[in-house]
Lab assay of single mutants.
Amino acid sequence: GETKIIYHLDGQETPYLVKLPLPAERVTLADFKGVLQRPSYKFFFKSMDDDFGVVKEEISDDNAKLPCFNGRVVSWLVSA
């Protein structure tokens, strides 16, 4: 499998796309960081919350699996 991750960088209009050679349910924050090489950023991901619906959730645990929608991951990188 392959996972497409779209990421928005510090408010830039056009998002970036990276592809990881892993199925979406196995991709972790560490996998994503390894491709990006951007150490001083906070990582937020499109996520579903039972109370609020669609939210941007910050993930900082490198072992955390990334939230996935239709085989895609959507993220926002914010300068720390």
Rank of each mutant, 00 (worst) to 15 (best):
D62C: 00
W76P: 04
E57Y: 09
K65H: 13
A30N: 07
A80C: 12
S75G: 09
F43H: 02
E57A: 11
M48R: 14
F44R: 02
H8D: 00
S60I: 08
L17A: 11
A80G: 13
P39I: 12
A24F: 06
K65T: 13
Y16N: 10
E25R: 05
A64F: 02
T28E: 00
V73K: 00
I5Q: 03
Q12V: 12
D10H: 05
V35T: 10
E25M: 08
V55F: 14
D62K: 00
D61I: 08
V35P: 01
T28F: 08
A24W: 09
D49N: 15
K56H: 09
E57R: 15
G71I: 09
Y7K: 02
T14P: 11
I6S: 07
T14D: 13
M48C: 14
K65D: 00
P21K: 07
A64C: 08
S75C: 13
D50H: 10
K42G: 04
F52R: 15
K33I: 00
F52E: 15
L29Q: 00
T3Y: 01
M48I: 11
F43K: 04
A80Q: 12
F43Y: 12
A64D: 08
N70M: 08
S60A: 10
L22C: 09
A24L: 08
P39D: 15
T14Q: 14
G34E: 14
M48P: 13
Q12G: 14
F69T: 08
G11V: 00
R72G: 07
Y7W: 01
C68G: 03
K46N: 12
F44L: 08
Q37G: 13
E13A: 10
G11F: 05
F44W: 09
D62L: 05
V73N: 05
Y41S: 03
S60Q: 11
L20E: 04
L36W: 02
D51M: 09
P23V: 02
G1S: 11
G11R: 07
D51L: 09
F43W: 05
N70Y: 00
D49R: 14
Y41A: 07
E25F: 00
L36S: 04
D50G: 13
F69V: 11
L66T: 02
D49V: 08
G71S: 06
H8Y: 14
H8Q: 02
A24S: 12
A64W: 03
E58R: 03
D31W: 04
L66M: 04
V74P: 00
V55H: 15
L9M: 09
Y16S: 10
K19T: 15
Q12K: 11
D51A: 13
L36G: 00
K56R: 13
F43Q: 00
K56L: 11
D51R: 15
I59C: 05
C68F: 11
P21R: 05
K46W: 09
I59W: 03
K46T: 08
D61A: 05
L77S: 01
V78R: 08
Y16H: 15
I5G: 04
L17P: 01
Q12R: 12
E2V: 11
E25T: 08
R72M: 14
W76I: 00
K33A: 00
Q37N: 14
N70Q: 08
N63C: 10
H8R: 08
S47E: 02
K42D: 00
A24I: 07
L20K: 04
Q12Y: 12
F32N: 00
R26Y: 07
R26S: 12
L77I: 08
K33P: 00
S79K: 10
P23F: 08
E57Q: 15
E57K: 15
L17Q: 15
L77C: 09
L66A: 01
S75F: 02
P39G: 13
L22R: 04
F32K: 00
E2Y: 12
F32S: 04
F69M: 10
